[in-house]
Amino acid sequence: MSQGEFQRDAGPAPVAASAIAARQLRYFDFVMAAFVAILLLSNVIGAGKVAVIHLPWIGDWPFGAGILFFPLSYVIGDVLTEVYGYARARRVIWAGFVAVAFMAFMSWVVVALPPAPTWTNQAAYETVFGQVPRIVLASMIAFWAGEFVNSYILARMKLWSGGRHLWMRTIGSTIGGQGVDSLIFYPLAFWGAAGWTNDLVLTVLVTQWALKVGWEVLLTPVTYLVVGFLKRREGLDVFDEGTDFTPFRARV
């Protein structure tokens, strides 16, 4: 498909991803920073806690507390792929992966350092920042696989649809990406772990996936606003024609 053959909604002229490899972009760095910040904070604060909500006619229903904010990283991932293309989204995913790895290493080192005799908060510090290697490994693998599935599906659907129906692409990619993320993370992190029955793992897994997709649907108007703003300001609408979709590289 040539550049002139793209069919899409009105807006900035479509360009192939390879045409902007060396181009300076006004907002890309800010979007990448937001992605990494949300990823790190949601992993530190919410990943290991099971909260509960009372549903009418159902009763108490458990869910992972990270669901409240972690899906924002998928929304930003959608924005990155939609506006800047798969290659730049891939670069951001790798940046996030390395940031999470360093966070886990830093947490391990700081928690392991012997506390001063006058500092009495070691137990609380270990509770908050102590990292279980199994959970860290599960989180990193699930994030890496889920984000790449999400970005790949969205980029491919953009080509198939000729750039139309953004809502279909963002929701469709989230169904796939978040499905892979949840299917990897919860069994790998909690199957057979103390306090986690097999039924609880499956319940939280399905609930997480459904809530993440639901978040994506609810945030679709916001996604449209952010995507429209960035495309207008950057003056581009990237299509991944001829893109090498391998995840095993970080070069644009």
Rank of each mutant, 00 (worst) to 15 (best):
W167G: 14
P187R: 03
F35A: 09
G48R: 12
A123H: 00
A101F: 07
S42I: 08
A189V: 00
V92N: 03
T243E: 11
G192H: 00
R134Y: 11
D29I: 08
V222S: 13
A210F: 04
G77H: 04
A189P: 09
A51P: 00
V50R: 14
F239D: 11
N43W: 01
S151E: 01
V128Q: 10
V79P: 02
L55F: 13
G85I: 00
Y125W: 08
G59C: 06
P114Y: 00
Q7R: 15
E147M: 12
W209R: 10
P247Y: 00
V83A: 10
D60S: 15
R88Y: 03
V238K: 07
S139A: 13
P187D: 02
V238A: 10
R8H: 15
W94E: 11
L183N: 02
A101W: 05
Q122S: 09
W61Q: 15
A250G: 05
W196Q: 05
V44K: 03
E5H: 15
F70N: 10
V15Y: 07
L68V: 14
W196V: 11
A95P: 00
N198D: 15
L218W: 05
L183A: 15
A17L: 01
G162V: 08
R232I: 12
T203Y: 00
A22H: 06
E126N: 10
V128D: 07
V110D: 10
A112Y: 11
V132P: 11
M1G: 15
D9R: 13
G235P: 11
T207I: 06
Q24D: 10
T203M: 02
R251V: 03
H165F: 13
A65R: 00
F97T: 14
V31K: 11
E82G: 09
L41F: 13
V83S: 07
F129N: 08
T246A: 12
L183V: 14
W215K: 09
P71W: 03
D29Q: 15
V128L: 14
S73C: 05
S151T: 09
L41M: 13
V132A: 14
M103I: 06
A123K: 01
I38C: 02
V201F: 02
G66Q: 05
F69P: 01
G214N: 01
H165Y: 12
A104Y: 06
V110L: 13
I175S: 08
F70M: 10
P62V: 05
